[in-house]
Simulated assay, not measured.
Amino acid sequence: MKPILSIIIPCFNSEATLDTTLESVLNQKYQNWEAIIVNDGSTDGTEEIALHWINKDDRFKYFTKQNEGLGKTRNFAINKSCGIFILPLDSDNQVEESFVQDAISIFEANSNIGVVYGHAQYFGKKNGFWEVDDYKLEKMLVHNYIDACAIYKKKFWEEVGGYDENMPYQGHEDWEFWIALGNLNIVFYHLNKIAFKYFVSKNTMSQLFTDKIIVQNQDYIVKKYSRQYHEQYTKAFFRNLDIDKLNSESVLVKTSKDLLFIILFRIKKRLWNK
Rank of each mutant, 00 (worst) to 15 (best):
D40A: 03
D40P: 03
D40S: 09
D40E: 08
G41I: 09
G41Y: 03
G41K: 10
S42M: 11
D44Q: 06
D44V: 01
G45Q: 14
G45V: 05
T46Y: 06
T46Q: 05
E47M: 05
E48P: 12
I49F: 05
W53E: 13
W53G: 12
I54Q: 06
N55C: 04
N55D: 06
N55V: 04
N55L: 06
D57E: 12
D57C: 07
D58E: 12
F60N: 06
K61H: 09
Y62T: 11
Y62R: 02
Y62C: 07
K65Y: 11
K65E: 13
Q66W: 04
Q66Y: 11
N67L: 03
N67R: 15
N67E: 12
E68Q: 15
L70G: 08
K72N: 10
K72L: 15
R74I: 14
N75Q: 10
N75C: 04
F76K: 11
I78H: 08
I78P: 12
I78M: 04
I78C: 13
N79K: 09
N79P: 00
C82P: 02
C82A: 11
G83T: 01
I84G: 01
I84F: 04
F85W: 02
I86P: 11
L87D: 01
L87E: 05
P88M: 07
P88W: 10
L89M: 01
D90F: 00
D90Q: 07
D92P: 00
D92C: 01
N93C: 14
N93D: 15
V95D: 11
E97S: 06
E97I: 11
E97D: 02
S98Y: 01
S98K: 03
F99S: 13
F99H: 06
Q101M: 08
Q101T: 00
A103T: 05
I106T: 14
F107A: 00
F107S: 03
A109H: 03
A109L: 06
A109G: 10
N110T: 02
N110F: 11
N110G: 06
S111C: 14
N112W: 03
G114V: 07
G114D: 04
V115D: 02
V115R: 02
V116E: 10
Y117P: 13
G118T: 05
H119V: 08
A120W: 05
Q121V: 11
Y122M: 04
G124E: 00
G124R: 04
K126E: 14
N127L: 14
G128Q: 12
F129V: 02
W130A: 12
E131N: 05
E131D: 06
V132K: 13
V132M: 09
D134R: 13
Y135N: 03
K136R: 13
K136H: 15
K139Y: 09
K139S: 13
M140Y: 05
L141M: 01
V142H: 12
V142F: 10
N144S: 15
Y145N: 07
Y145Q: 06
Y145C: 07
D147H: 06
A148N: 01
A150N: 14
I151Q: 09
Y152M: 11
K153Q: 12
K153S: 01
K155T: 01
F156S: 07
F156L: 07
W157G: 01
W157F: 00
E158C: 00
V160I: 12
G162A: 09
G162D: 06
Y163K: 02
D164V: 03
D164I: 07
D164S: 00
E165F: 02
E165A: 05
M167I: 14
